[in-house]
Design a binder for these strands. Structure first.
Lengths: 103, 103
DNA sequence: CACATACATAGATAAATGTCAATGTATTTT
DNA sequence: AAAATACATTGACATTTATCTATGTATGTG
């Protein structure tokens, strides 16, 4: 039912914004709450909330609520799957170029 | 001098569009000319030209002109660098690769 | 040269995206 | 209960993006 290209594009959308890359870099240090991320980024709270929604929706980031805090962390399993996906996208077969007359 | 996050976001933009993912899938079979790509995609020629510009600008795809044909292929070196980048972003350990056996 | 082919560029447009201020909601504290 | 805290949601706005039609440019062919 789901189109793979659409799903894959959705995953990669997690990485095509500067702010989201900075969030991921911050999460490399381990799970962090939204307020800590907010302090490290020069954006407003609603903007952070927006980006975290995209990251969680993509599956790359996991969210956990504890009291009034939201804790975010990198989903390593999804990360591994995404690395494999990217590799399969970019590693071309070891075959000769198709230089036959095309038209 | 360039901002890494900006450059990285630019690279990942190559993968966050359905049409570009389909182009990359087509290029997995090896180098192809624009007209062949065009036949396989339900888009107009200027739209393909637009997407190929983004792919080439990102470095993921290499372009080669021969007569009146443009040949495109996946830049494997850039691909490998991008996989490494994604891995370091997500802190994913080196996953099994079919290339490790041969090198 | 005149014409056809392959692709690029320009301009227009609708949709998606990133951002913020204002406000709402859930949770904790006093 | 009232206030404070942490985050989500809404609505507005400017920018970017994907797409098309129309046209331009380079290259090959009669």
């Amino acid at each position: 039912m789901s189109r793979p290209h659409s799903d894959n594009a959705k995953v990669f959308k997690a990485f095509c914004d500067e702010t989201r890359l900075m969030v991921l870099e911050l999460l490399q240090g381990g799970e962090k709450c939204a307020c800590v991320l907010l302090e490290s980024l020069d954006i407003t709270q609603p903007t952070l909330s927006h980006h975290m929604n995209i990251l969680v929706e993509s599956g790359i980031v996991s969210a956990r609520k504890e009291g009034r805090w939201m804790y975010y962390s990198i989903n390593e399993l999804k990360g591994e799957k995404t690395v494999l996906l990217l590799r399969s996208l970019l590693m071309v077969a070891d075959v000769q170029s198709d230089r036959t007359a095309c038209c």
